[in-house]
Write a protein that binds this DNA or RNA. Structure first.
Lengths: 119, 119
DNA sequence: ACTTTATGGGCAGATATCTGCCTATAATCA
DNA sequence: TGATTATAGGCAGATATCTGCCCATAAAGT
């Protein structure tokens, strides 16, 4: 719905937030996983389909905040499931994710929006 | 349903037959593709789910008649779809597929079954 | 303030692989 | 011949990624 340049939409912020959490556990994440994570965390019936999330991941990657790589297909085969696309935060993405968190934390009463992503 | 050792079930024969056809076009094939191919070729409402086919492919690979490899995930990404597992006939699989065809061709009236796979 | 425009999210479904459970039946065995 | 057993196929659904279409709405433009 026409984003103000340099800002993130809520879904993108949630993804970055989840990415920081998973990063502490030294894990990369994949779309299906984060979709379930977000669906659980937020009661919202969000993501009736996964399309919205995968598109958001694509945008974040295009912005340079996430990078993705395909996992070794052999590993997927060993675990008897389709291969995953694994995402991780770039340096810029990490900065942005932290800035987003700070903005969230200090956004108690204020409704003012803050720039959390580079123009 | 308890196979006589060294024989193939119809689904497996169809797969090998399709594999020979595709081989002429110098193409490897993947599960989803062959499922549709078979579903089209045989009016049968076969393969309401794909599970049956993927299991048959797995058996043929375990028998040594097919080999599989994962396609380059980058190519799948470029074509904006999930990665495929590509199958091709082994030498033994090619022999077996040809023997199956001959058996089919000469099975006009006779109902007698023939050994088309090695014990 | 009012119109235009860009785009994110919902809905629907395609693409692709894989498993668990049940049942029917062919092959084997007694 | 009749009982046992192995297993292929159907049914249902999980895992995983991705696209097309539409609409609502916020941002930008006038």
């Amino acid at each position: 719905m026409r984003r103000k340049p340099g800002t993130l939409v809520p879904l993108e912020e949630w993804i970055l937030s989840a990415a920081i959490e998973l990063r502490r556990r030294r894990e990369d994440f994949h779309g299906y996983q984060i979709a379930k994570h977000i669906a659980d965390a937020s009661d919202r019936k969000l993501l009736t389909a996964y399309g919205t999330l995968y598109r958001a991941l694509g945008r974040l990657e295009a912005m340079g905040l996430l990078r993705s790589r395909w996992e070794d297909p052999q590993r997927a085969a060993d675990e008897r499931r389709p291969p995953r696309r694994l995402y991780s935060l770039t340096d810029e993405g990490l900065d942005t994710a932290r800035a987003t968190r700070r903005a969230r934390a200090s956004a108690h009463a204020r409704t003012g929006k803050r720039r959390v992503a580079p123009a």
